[in-house]
Design a protein around this nucleic acid. Sequence first.
DNA 1: CAGTATCCTATCGGATACTG
DNA 2: CAGTATCCGATAGGATACTG
Lengths: 107, 107
Amino acid sequence: MSAPAPDVFLADCPARSTLELVADTWSVVVIVGLAHGPRRYSALLERAGGISKKMLTQTLRRLVDAGLVVRPATRGGDYRLSDLGVSLLGPLTALTAWAEEHAHELA
Amino acid sequence: MSAPAPDVFLADCPARSTLELVADTWSVVVIVGLAHGPRRYSALLERAGGISKKMLTQTLRRLVDAGLVVRPATRGGDYRLSDLGVSLLGPLTALTAWAEEHAHELA
DNA sequence: CAGTATCCTATCGGATACTG
DNA sequence: CAGTATCCGATAGGATACTG
């Protein structure tokens, strides 16, 4: 954590691919949706305003593959954040907090 | 700043549109690219690895319209972050810092 | 209920060429 | 140099129907 102004700006930066994973609306919505605790597929579908089954499935798959979310052991069980996923909550809530605070200032 | 677990999770939340603006790779890259100070179009184009003129123009337009970036007064001048844009740097660097720190843990 | 698979449109986004 | 405009293939993403 002592990197001196690291540059996501550069394409070859490994953080870039990570950023591309995280800098996605549905990913953020789903992760935040799991912040309060594990939830079933249908719970996510209903609460995540406007997401379609297709995108939910796809987003969950990506997040599971990336290791941010843990797939339920049994079909129909709860999805939950992995430790890595939990570690992302800090930065992410900072971002969503900003979004809420400044939503009215944006055109 | 005292919101009790606000929910970007919901679609009708005003923060959602804000999130959709910010949760975009190119937007993040350009904003971070302007973090160190104002830069000209060509400077952004060269340093933002892999971005095309089209996407740079489009992204800049969106960010300017949203009020996050200030267009140069004279053609060929420097683009710079607005106060609002600067206020976003905190949350954003938290996110990019996370991306750098955990890049190797992701599949 | 929990997904998966298919169809189809809209947008993304690079390459290229053009203008002031 | 600083953009803008057009062409076009690739992907996003909703609607719907289907399976266990």
